[in-house]
């Protein structure tokens, strides 16, 4: 399993992170934007886990794993709040397109 190395895992994480960032920047549907944010968070989780697994797990240091649990919880909370806000927006204008949410600018 030479493919399963630290560097490859990190690169996978970074690619996922970039995909997420790309999604946030390009997608107009705010629901998709929220999903892209989830991808970014999970990419970071992946990076955490691979650092933990390859570098520190053997020494018995496991902080990275715990941090991942924390991030999952926070991401869930953020997603919940985000979805709630999207629901209210949808109720008000039957649409969650970011192009229509440009009332304030300048």
């Amino acid at each position: 399993m030479t493919f399963f190395t630290l560097n490859n895992c990190i690169i996978l994480g970074l690619i996922l992170f970039s995909i997420g960032a790309y999604g946030v920047i390009t997608r107009r549907n705010l629901l998709v934007v929220l999903m892209s944010l989830e991808i970014m968070f999970n990419a970071v989780n992946l990076i955490f886990l691979s650092f933990n697994y390859f570098l520190y797990y053997q020494e018995g240091r496991e902080l990275g794993q715990y941090f991942v649990l924390l991030v999952i919880a926070v991401a869930a909370a953020e997603a919940a709040v985000g979805l709630a806000i999207l629901v209210t927006i949808y109720r008000n204008r039957r649409n969650v397109d970011s192009d229509l949410l440009k009332e304030m600018k300048g």
């Binding site: 960032a21 927006i89 949410l101």
Partner: peptide, 23 residues
């Protein structure tokens, strides 16, 4: 509507920044 917009912008950009922070 403006309050909605404010919240969603804050949330998305805040989470975006948090992602970088986490990285």
């Amino acid at each position: 509507l403006r309050s909605n917009e404010s919240a969603v912008k804050y949330l998305i950009l805040g989470a975006f920044a948090s992602a970088f922070l986490l990285l």
